[in-house]
Design a binder for these strands. Structure first.
Ligand SMILES: [Mn+2]
Ligand SMILES: [Mn+2]
Ligand SMILES: [Zn+2]
Ligand SMILES: [Zn+2]
Lengths: 135, 135
DNA sequence: ATCCAGTTTATAATAATTCTAAAGTAAAAC
DNA sequence: GTTTTACTTTAGAATTATTATAAACTGGAT
């Protein structure tokens, strides 16, 4: 993903491409593999990678803006911090609690044969499979 | 589950059966169906049900002691609060975000046909299936 | 160049949880 | 049964993650 695409990505989702958003977006989206992070880990990585310092509030704002725009998803992981995910397609996760690492599982690599029917009046929105790992 | 069993349950798990622990244990474990709760919701329910008031720290202490003893499990739910579960067997959940309600799914009611193999050097500890509901 | 809505930022506020240390209590030791 | 001990409860302080506030800043339209 090139810089011009980053600008387009922001503009088409109604996000003014500010210096901060562009830099964070480049960091998050100009990569091949999925990136899972917390606001804290992202902040630390940005401090190293870039020369600019971002207010923590800006990182929160930006991450939420990206999430609202559909550029990030949120993953539920045991623990107090919220995890975000650059993979916004429907997929599942391995979780390695040794090093608090999430690993993507393609939706097609999980086949569920049997599932109970949803409670009365409810429908199934989506299914999340979470595979905890050990050594 | 009778009171005598509650006392046994506490004693055999190395928990001194204090007034507070017994009352909370009776509230949690003397029921037929699984009970899912947060510390906040439990606190409110205890305030109504019992005449005694418990310090919030006691509820945290007690819930954690019960969890460590294997009498409660923790469920991962999107949101800031931690959810606990009186069902400590391996099972899955529906989640109704309308009213933040968890509903148990028996382990046998979910059959997974295909799962990716664990990453190198890792083994699968357990699989959690989480089914989000909508109306 | 001017203006304005949207954005950033430092800081304060909030919410959930954990920590602290003093007072209380169950159960062991006498 | 009294004393002793370790464990527990408790109120309040502290911590952590996150959100709110409001003043300064800026992208982009006019
Ligand atoms: Mn979580
Ligand atoms: Mn959670
Ligand atoms: Zn992912
Ligand atoms: Zn359950």
């Amino acid at each position: 993903m090139k810089k011009i695409d980053i600008l387009k990505k922001l503009r088409t989702s109604g996000l003014r491409p500010t210096k901060q958003r562009v830099e964070i977006a480049k960091f998050l989206f100009e990569r091949d593999k999925t990136f899972h992070f917390t606001v804290e880990s992202l902040n630390k990585l940005l401090e190293k990678k870039t020369s600019n310092k971002f207010a923590l509030a800006t990182i929160y704002n930006t991450v939420h803006a990206f999430k609202s725009a559909g550029h990030l998803s949120e993953v539920e992981v045991r623990g107090k911090k919220t995890y975000f995910d650059t993979n916004v397609s429907n997929h599942h996760h391995f979780y390695d609690s040794e090093n608090s690492e999430l690993i993507d599982i393609d939706s097609n690599d999980v086949v569920i044969q049997k599932i109970p029917k949803a409670p009365n009046g409810k429908k199934i929105k989506n299914i999340e499979v979470f595979i905890n790992l050990k050594n």
